[in-house]
Nucleic acid binder design. Structure first.
Lengths: 250, 250
DNA sequence: CTGCACTTTCCATTCAATGGTACGGGCTCG
DNA sequence: CGAGCCCGTACCATTGAATGGAAAGTGCAG
């Protein structure tokens, strides 16, 4: 044998090691990590030790492996959504104060809404949208708000996904949802994620007219006219867009 | 030439590429990245492309490189401080509501306090403690609260750092600060970071009596009796510790 | 239109990465 | 209490994957 019997590069392996942690799991036994990453134990051990030397992983006594603080720090200091989150935070706090609702901020990644920031209020309804959590575009208000404002070609490619059989959702239904969202200027979904909640989201648009994020709130179904919150959200979204442009210049 | 003329492994290089982004910088030109990482352009290019294939980096048109959303997502879903942050969030929100102050949460990493979560209030004084920001132990209340409650051997090793000449701070001064902090049960610093602010922090202790974090607030110097906030912080800190134990079991 | 600076691709060379094997320590089960 | 097992750690001969100089491609500025 020699370099990689399985035909994968070192980079592939490093990625597999770091990506081997299942969602929400912080500690992994070395042997389990090796198995999950599909690597021989000795190779996994060597890689882990090398990464640990750089603080990208932590190799504790007894072979329990965690992600390293250095990696966390680097990613959070230089993440591509850093400017967005900084721009959005004050406005999200305003919304939370004024409306007393869970607030969240999402970007489009693939065909899913990826939630990059969230403020939840104790006592208000549970917010399923975890930070770093994902939800498919067509079953989240944030996803709809994002997709409904994407360029035509992106939407077309996205809708193409639903042509395949086996899916309960058809392209027509999704197209209709997107059309409504675009026409209204906001997305609204009831009971899809959690049967007892509404969710509403509006697009955040930057100076170049690109929809870069979605700002949303979650509220109990009991709320009779959730649309009443839309103007507040739209105002905040405009503020975020403006602030984002400022940050990108300076 | 062959594998690494400079004697560094592939893992070293991958780490250097990811770590090449200066603080707060999200985009880097490929050539600049190569220089910062100390790599030949073609090697940097190959590594970046490989990492980009896995979503750990984004290689945009024109060779501008960003950290990838996948990496951000992985790190935030599996970070070692995830449980801590989840346990702390509700209590931090309570503090923010009740005291109307900036709240922050830090852990000890090396000889620095690393801020892992923060809630800031519009209109209240600026909070210099950025998420993923660091501050030396002896000039942050969070750092003092953390170090003052570490085991003896850790403190001894830490204090050893100040033996070297050239530093304005002596071991004696720091030892005194730590002693006061330990005796009072909270750390308090005025005007060190920002001349117009106080900062106060209390330790967060888990079920095994280990000090795992520091919970702190920042407030204007005008505040006459900042100590009045201590009981509220301590109550919240105890709550966080208890919640953390629960999360670790379940 | 020319020149420059940067990204991207190519490919022969060669040493760093590989993983089977073996050792050691801790835990469980009979 | 001892045997067996599992898991982390260390070693080292083999070899093909990683390397980087060089050249081609690209886009922008003057």
């Amino acid at each position: 044998m020699a370099n990689s019997a399985s035909g994968d590069s070192v980079v592939d392996r490093v990625v597999r090691v770091i990506a081997a942690f299942p969602e929400g799991v912080a500690v992994l036994q070395l042997s389990e990590l090796a198995e999950r990453a599909g690597l021989p134990l000795s190779s996994a051990h060597r890689l882990v030790r090398q990464l640990a030397e750089h603080g990208f992983l932590d190799l504790g006594a007894g072979g329990n492996v965690r992600l390293g603080m250095r990696l966390w720090e680097l990613v959070n200091r230089n993440s591509p959504t850093l400017a967005l989150r900084q721009a959005a935070m004050p406005f999200m706090e305003d919304i939370q104060q004024v409306l007393s609702r869970n607030v969240n901020l999402a970007v489009l990644d693939g065909w899913e809404a990826l939630f990059v920031e969230r403020l939840s209020r104790r006592g208000s309804v549970a917010n399923r949208a975890r930070v770093a959590g994902r939800m498919p575009v067509h079953i989240s208000s944030a996803g709809l708000a994002l997709m409904a404002n994407q360029p035509r070609d992106v939407q077309a490619e996205y809708l193409g996904q639903f042509s395949d059989p086996g899916g309960k959702v058809t392209a027509g239904v999704v197209r209709q949802l997107l059309a409504e969202t675009a026409q209204q200027g906001y997305a609204q979904l009831a009971g899809v994620v959690d049967p007892d909640t509404w969710s509403i989201a509006v697009p955040v648009v930057d100076g170049k007219r690109r929809t870069v994020a979605a700002l949303g709130v979650v509220l109990p179904l009991a709320e009779t006219r959730p649309q009443a919150l839309v103007p507040a959200l739209q105002t905040a979204a405009r503020g975020i867009g403006r602030q984002l442009d400022k940050l990108r210049e300076g």
